[in-house]
Design a protein around this nucleic acid. Sequence first.
DNA 1: ATTAGCACTCTACTTAAATGAGTGCTAATA
DNA 2: TATTAGCACTCATTTAAGTAGAGTGCTAAT
Lengths: 346, 346
Amino acid sequence: MIEMQLDERKLKILQAIIRNYLETGEPVGSRTISKFTDLNLSSATIRNEMADLEELGYIIQPHTSAGRIPSDKGYRLYVDTMLEERVAEVDEMRDQLIQNADKMDKLLKQVAKILAEHTNYATMVTSPQYRSRKVKFIQLTEVDKEQLLAIIVLEGNIIKNKMIAMNEPLNKDIILKLNLVLNTFLQGLDLSEINLGLIQKMKEQAAGYTNVVSDILDAVAQAISGEEDVQIFTSGTTNILKYPELNDTKKASELIYTLEEKKQLNELMNSECESEENRGIQVYIGDETPIESMKDCAVVTATYQIEEGVYGKVGIIGPKRMDYERVVGTLQKLMSDLDYIFKDKK
Amino acid sequence: MIEMQLDERKLKILQAIIRNYLETGEPVGSRTISKFTDLNLSSATIRNEMADLEELGYIIQPHTSAGRIPSDKGYRLYVDTMLEERVAEVDEMRDQLIQNADKMDKLLKQVAKILAEHTNYATMVTSPQYRSRKVKFIQLTEVDKEQLLAIIVLEGNIIKNKMIAMNEPLNKDIILKLNLVLNTFLQGLDLSEINLGLIQKMKEQAAGYTNVVSDILDAVAQAISGEEDVQIFTSGTTNILKYPELNDTKKASELIYTLEEKKQLNELMNSECESEENRGIQVYIGDETPIESMKDCAVVTATYQIEEGVYGKVGIIGPKRMDYERVVGTLQKLMSDLDYIFKDKK
DNA sequence: ATTAGCACTCTACTTAAATGAGTGCTAATA
DNA sequence: TATTAGCACTCATTTAAGTAGAGTGCTAAT
């Protein structure tokens, strides 16, 4: 059997099928393509080509006598090679954003919301992760007889508080000494550099009050490492319900639940941003996503950068027939807007 | 025509209808009630009574040959007079809660989530509003040459941070003095007691450095008053989709959107808690709720108290055929658990 | 006052037929 | 050889009709 190839014409037809499907959400038939394209081919010819495309795995027939819809492989080809960049008309987004730039989490919530409103998809935004954040200083303060407040300031003035319960009151000198030890050891250190060995050393250094002190150190260490506070903001989850192909109650509710619950989203939002050249925009289609409830969706993520080593991600979840051009365009624009805003703040 | 009255028997029948409907979600017919109750009446008699109850407006017939379902008025009567208190089996909830009691917002998120999981309804929890919160202590710390960190600890160990930019570096003595002034003046004060006059006095007291100082005081005052952060946490929004009568895509998505958006929820969650005796538990049925998208739901809210003058609210949103007994019971239990947790923390 | 019995209503479900979009294949055509 | 017209066939969707069952309202008997 002759090896089949994707010639120019097949590509054009595939593109037409995808474009059309993106618009309508309905399987597209040969007649439609015959009229839709400027190829001037009869529906019969298109049918033959479509049969080939199906054999090649780029399109799928939901049932015998239906039109074709793109397969994951088809979408993938489309996203990789056929996507024309598009200048999105999202300047107003920027204006809306700048107004709320004073508090980081509010800003990010805004980003998620505005993005959702603009795209009509569900969106998610992670707070920046301070992976290589350095400790600027630490201060322990006695709040009352039973409680100590640890304040940890990280580079970039990220502030963390941690209440530490004490069994027995500590006297001022000890607190002073602890402050000294903590600062001497930890100041200027990268979070990744704070390991168990170091903590062990500190415990030795502060020997004598070991039991209390080790509690405190543990608490502080935990507060510093603070994985926990990679917040994820989501918005527009109900947009999901607008797309008939996702509107199966069971599936949709699982998806919305995932978005509400947020835990699982880390899998998506924590993956490294590889291709620097494309502003870290990644597209997951169908089974490519690591999240079960999104198997019928497409996910587009982009990475924004606050400064060297401080990244966050923005993601959009929609049907596979997502308007990729618009989404990618919008995200690129948004990334550059965020850059602008953060530069300004700094 | 003779004025009809709600006699004992009619009440019993109504109660049986409602109970049954709460369980099944289906209209309930006369035969069911005839067997269900211990009244030993035939279905025919029940039918007569039901006709009366319908005329009185307590039940509704969705169509000619269907059973009856409770009307809003019927639910209302049920909630007001027929609800027997029930001891709920929610002790595990308490255990789960205590584990996460260290950070307020996490705790409240947990409350929302656990409550949603236990009840299978959608839930919402507001952060407490510190109307009459007292200042415990304030500390200014120099972070670097240009920035000062103000840490304000309020009663109940609510911690607020505020970064303050300085035009000119301050020397240590001045900071010390400022600390002293701030604490002397503000410690133990109610937020409402911190007014412009007081601030004026403090400014005088710290005269000499007025320009910087007034900036700082303004910042601190703003940080303390911090109205903005009445957060609302929601959870289990997808539970809505489990109830067929709410599963109309359009309505459900509006409702979930309301819950995601949160803004509107303030209308519900900010209303005063009137009847102290009932732990501030309020029930809104159907049109009684101020929120449009909840017209087909029932909402139950309860008020928790951290201490004198510091309240927050917990709310549950479900179908009108909500299991009121269980919900009210669960909420009462939860309220007392929260009390316990907060007492302990204090 | 209660109840048995019966005719009636209306929904939900099942089944069957009609519709129509779309295909695959074959034979004719350029 | 590539393209196309034409036709039989498939299958999801819609429409219609018929059935079953739950429940009512009313009347007459107890």
